[in-house]
């Protein structure tokens, strides 16, 4: 396995809104590494710098944003401070939370082809990649539709396809379902499930919903006050209910139930998923 991402003691602050006064550090000595093919979720309270960290992965931070930076980010060995953002964009694709603000072309096909066209790829290759990306997100047959007539979930799938068409090695999903209704969320998460199972892509997902994090993630990184505060497998992270609540973060309801039960009855339950909880409880209740 090779290492896809290395973040080494990264500190960053945006340009100060008040002239002559330095802005506070959004990220403080963040270090982490991600193996190729790993699925890593990033959690953290609102305003903790999760999006900033993602933007640092493809060089937008600090190349477009300015500000102060210490430490380094390497993507497959390339330093993101030195590589042109356009080159990094082919390695790291970022999907942001409000898809509709990213879509602006007249057809789904044009939308997905846009990035490839601006790279000057030959028409044949573009057509091929567009078809491939649309199939991957389950949107084949929507080629000629206007993106503006699509549902929220469909728009977000088009946004994901437009990034996938660039065939990045690393996909970053920044709260990909934050603005979607349950049906749209289910659509997008089924695409994520597909990518995870079939493509072996390296995926970084910023997400609040702990149930989905449990389902997908090899590893969870919890940011707090600009630092990595917790890191580990989902089961280990979500068994630390008090710590997570103190940071201000959610855990699956079955984890909370186990925790409160343990406190009250001095038991040692540890649940993160519905099925596992059901199995464990049904065997106990059956005996009654």
């Amino acid at each position: 396995m090779s290492v896809a991402i290395v973040v080494d003691r990264l500190s960053y602050s945006y340009p100060s809104p008040v002239p002559g006064r330095d802005a506070t550090w959004v990220l403080q000595e963040v270090s982490l590494s991600v193996e190729e093919g790993e699925f890593v979720s990033i959690m953290g309270p609102t305003g903790v710098g999760k999006t900033t960290l993602c933007l640092a992965l493809n060089g937008i931070v600090p190349q477009s944003t300015g500000g102060r930076i210490k430490g380094e980010v390497h993507i497959y060995g390339l330093n993101t401070k030195l590589q042109p953002v356009a080159d990094l964009a082919q390695l790291v694709g970022i999907v942001f939370q409000d898809a509709e603000t990213q879509l602006f072309n007249m057809s789904v096909e044009a939308e997905i082809a846009f990035g490839l066209e601006s790279l000057g790829k030959p028409a044949e290759e573009i057509a091929e990649r567009v078809d491939w990306a649309m199939a991957l997100v389950g949107m084949s047959g929507f080629k000629d539709r206007s993106p503006f007539q699509l549902s929220g979930g469909q728009k977000q799938r088009v946004a994901i396809a437009s990034i996938l068409a660039m065939t990045p090695k690393i996909l970053v999903l920044d709260e990909p379902t934050a603005n979607l209704d349950p049906l749209g969320k289910a659509e997008v998460f089924s695409v994520v499930r597909e990518l995870r199972q079939k493509r072996g892509m390296t995926i970084i997902m910023i997400e609040h919903e702990s149930e989905h994090i449990v389902e997908f993630s090899d590893r969870v990184i919890v940011l707090n006050n600009g630092r990595v505060e917790l890191e580990g497998r989902p089961a280990s992270i979500f068994s630390q209910v008090d710590h997570m609540r103190k940071i201000g973060l959610d855990v699956p309801q079955v984890s909370e139930m186990a925790h409160r039960h343990n406190q009250k009855y001095q038991t040692h339950f540890a649940f993160t998923q519905l099925d596992e909880t059901y199995q464990a409880l049904v065997s106990r209740l059956d005996g009654k």
Binding site: Q253, M257, R260, K264, L281, L285, D286, G287
Partner: peptide, 17 residues
Amino acid sequence: TVAEFLEGYGNLAERMR
């Protein structure tokens, strides 16, 4: 809710076979 679940089922450990 979680609170109602805990209240409803009581001590799950006591329900062992």
